[in-house]
Amino acid sequence: MEYTRGGRPVPRGDLERWVTFSKFGDAELVSLTGEIDLANAPEIGKAIVQRIEKAGKVLIDLTTVSFLDSAGVRLLDALIGDLNDHGTPTRLVVGATGAARMTLQLCAFREDVLATDLDRAAAEISS
């Protein structure tokens, strides 16, 4: 047994700390939380791809993400690209301010897939 406050280096395979899956209406909801960076983005990406491969609609919620780096952006960029190719309606829900919004803005991420509110994003892809 071992437990450490403040933590040791990020354990792998413990992905629920950053990503969980659920349904929002008829859309697959991917909820990301905490710090998404070079250390965990590749594993998170794999988990998401596995889950949403056959989804009809996808919502990715970034509102509780406290840090997002370029590896995280790369992950989102690839996801959106693939979903677009498949014609899957998709929205990224991200707060109007905050670390994730800042990073996405600095990268000039596509504004048309960004939303600030989950309900509104769900409504957008339903119509």
Binding site: V10, D37, L38, A39, A99, M102, L106
Partner: peptide, 28 residues
């Protein structure tokens, strides 16, 4: 180890009362 460094840096930035926007930019 990047996340560990970021935690220290974040605490340090907070202690110096750096504004959130500047803090997030420095962390990034």
């Amino acid at each position: 180890q990047i996340a560990l460094l970021r935690a220290d840096l974040r605490a340090w930035l907070v202690a110096h009362e750096i504004e959130p926007e500047c803090r997030d930019a420095v962390l990034l």
